[in-house]
Structures are given as structure tokens and as C-alpha cells.
Design a protein around this nucleic acid. Sequence first.
DNA 1: GAATGATGTTACCGATCGGTAACAATGCTT
DNA 2: AAGCATTGTTACCGATCGGTAACATCATTC
Lengths: 215, 215
Amino acid sequence: MGNEINDTNAVAEQAPKARPRKVTQAQDAQAQILDAIDELFYREGARAVGVDAIVKRAGVNKMSLYRQFASKDALMLHYLAGREARFWKYFDASVAKHPGKPREQLQQVFVDMAERVGRPGYRGCPFVNIAVEFPDPAHPVRGVVAENKKQLMARLLKLATQAGARDPQALADGAALLIEGGYTATQTYAPGHPLIAALPQVAAAMIATACDAAD
Amino acid sequence: MGNEINDTNAVAEQAPKARPRKVTQAQDAQAQILDAIDELFYREGARAVGVDAIVKRAGVNKMSLYRQFASKDALMLHYLAGREARFWKYFDASVAKHPGKPREQLQQVFVDMAERVGRPGYRGCPFVNIAVEFPDPAHPVRGVVAENKKQLMARLLKLATQAGARDPQALADGAALLIEGGYTATQTYAPGHPLIAALPQVAAAMIATACDAAD
DNA sequence: GAATGATGTTACCGATCGGTAACAATGCTT
DNA sequence: AAGCATTGTTACCGATCGGTAACATCATTC
């Protein structure tokens, strides 16, 4: 509601010790912080990025950060929540391209993933990265990672079942391994490595073997 | 009242403080340091482990470390060299179990790997981990990782070719993706997750599809 | 206009980071 | 015994880590 932008640019009267001060709404600061960590944590790693770098990029003050978030751990949880939402947005978009055709849906997941992670500068799966950065399984971030992968496995199993695989769990396992492998290969090999481009074909062969009649 | 605490600068006259001092050979200290980093870097991550923790665990002095190694980066390179040797020892051991049978050799790589990485407390592929911890592709450690994976791909391609795959490169790509996926899944899922145990079966199906006559 | 609570700013905390200077003690060589 | 290089020890460096106290300034409400 209500008020206009504060005009801090009125320099008509310069008080001797009064310095123009930028006043930000709490929610604005929060949004800027979330934008900053989404970029910084992903690009450089949560462990490597300090709060000073975060506030600098967000353009807010450090105290503004700590009045919105309890700790850096809390920041990481918010970061992961945002990344998880984005992940499912991608996943659902792939599925939505082939309504009622689970086999094509599963295949499309790999096609879109290969396109996405194959781009130069791709930095890998944020869940994989943060799991590696925080080896302690009891660390809060590990819970978010586990939950994401658990739901992913459930979705894969559902698709494999709907696709008519003889052994749906086996196909879901294979798909899950290929997904983790595709993510990781972008870092150990390279985002543009032919291995990444081969991901859809490898998945296609796996799906075909699992679904087509053989025995 | 003491001014003896006050002067930390000039310690001229003091009682003879003869203290027993442990003297270690340089090579002994070096070996202890290498043992320490092999454990610490792998267990907690190279980024999370400080040199103070290293010298403490190695039982040597910090200066002894810096007289043997130029920097922490140099330590990480030594660590990776050791890990690479161990990796190829495992790989060659799997291959050696089936002389002259490339298809069984390739399969055995997955069987042994699943057993190894499925153990509780497994902390993932050291190359994957350090690549994630140091996002900058120009960092020295990334070169070691790239070289290891490049050689792995070459070995996989060789095995796939010898195994008579119709498209050896496709099989090698699939195998490489499964390997990366198996490593990573131990961290994002868990070392004891059924997904890891399913790795050999998934690989077996992939190998069969790639090698058995179809068209 | 005064009170009030939210925000901005500065300065600081203890701990740890990777790395080093300076010097005391040792062992080996001659 | 004397010299000498190597090793052990302490104490320290500047930078950065995550996090906070204290206070100045703001916007809003009474």
C-alpha cells in the first residue's frame, strides 16, 4: 500500500553530517539476498561463499541479512528450496510434453536434461554439489537432498510402471543412475563432452530394453 | 608483580629449558603427512581440512610440512596421485579376474565397484568430490581429475570394443555414465541404498543390449 | 510532535585460514 | 671438538570466517 518511492535524491539541502541512506523494505532485501545466494552458492559452492560476499552482491547490509535469516545454514536451506522448485518445474515441463505417453515422458526427461546440463558453464546438480560439500549426513542440508532424490525416485518408478516396464524398479534404478551420472559427468568430464550428448541415446536404449518384449 | 609476562619480545636470560625433542626423518614426516591427507581430504573434503588439522593428525610440525610441500595445493595433488593409483589398482584387479574375456571384465568392474562403494560410510569418488569442491576449471586439481576420467573412458572404450559391442563408443558412454552415477548416488541417496546394489544388474542389461546380436 | 519499532552503519568479536620468520636443538661430517 | 645443515618449536602475519553489539537514522502511528 501506500507510499511512493522515497526520494533520497533530493540534494537541495545537505545537512552537514546527514548522509543519504538507502532504505530497503525487508521483503525487498530478502528477495535480493535470495537472488544472490541462488547465484553465488550454485556458481562457487556454498562452502566457498562467505556472508560478506553475499551481502555485497545482494546490495544489502550484513545486519539486514541476519535479521531475516538466522544463520548461513538457514540461507542454504532457502537456497535448496528454490533449487528444488526449479528442478520440479523442469521435470514437469518435460512430462507435460507428452500427455498420456509415459514412455515418451521418461525419454523427454533425459532429452531436456542433456540439453540443459550440456551448456557451457553448467555447474552440476546443486543437490549433488552441496551433498559433497557437507559430508556429515546429519547436516540439515543433507535432509533436503535426500528428500529430493527420494521423490525423484518415486516419480521415476511411477513413470517406469506406467510405461509398462517388465521390471519397473530396475528401470527406475537405471534411470536414476543415469541422471546422477549425467549431472556428475558435467563436472568430471565437461559440460560439452560428447558423453553428455550421448545421455538421451543411452537412456533410450535402456528404456527400450526394459519395456520391449523379450522373454 | 610480574613484568615477566609483559616482555614477550626480549627473552634474554632464562633458566636452561632443556626439553626432550622428537626428531623425525624428513621422509618419515612426509609419509605420515601423506597418510594423514589421504584420510582427512577424503573423509572431510579437501576444502574443509586445514593444514593445522593435517599436522595434528600426522603428528608432525607445521614447518616440517611446509619444508616438504610447497603449499596446500601441492598437498592436494599428492593426495590425488595416491587416489588415482588406488583406483587403477582396483580397476586392474577386476579386469584380471577374467583374462581374455573382455565382456566379463567389464561386468566385473561394476560388480566390484558396487561392493566397494556400497559399504556404509563410503564417501564417494575422490575425483568427483574434489571437482565439486573446486569449481574453477583452471584449478590444478581439475587437470588431474580430467586426466583420470579421460583414461577411464579410454579403458572403457577398449573393453567395449574387445567385447564386440556393435557401437563400442555408445557402450563406453553408457558405462561411464553409470560409473559416475554409482559414485554420486552413494552421496545423494546413500551408500547402502538399493540403487547401489542394482548397479551390476543395470550394467549387465546395458552390456547385453550393446553386445548381443539384434540387427 | 513525540514515541516506537524497523532499518542502516560501523566497528568489533573470537576463531580459523594458509603461510612464514626467527631461533633453539639435534645429528652428521670432518 | 667444531662446523654445518636439518629439524623442532614458538610466535606471529594479514586475511577471512560466521556472527553480533551499539548506535544512528528512517518511516509510521498516536
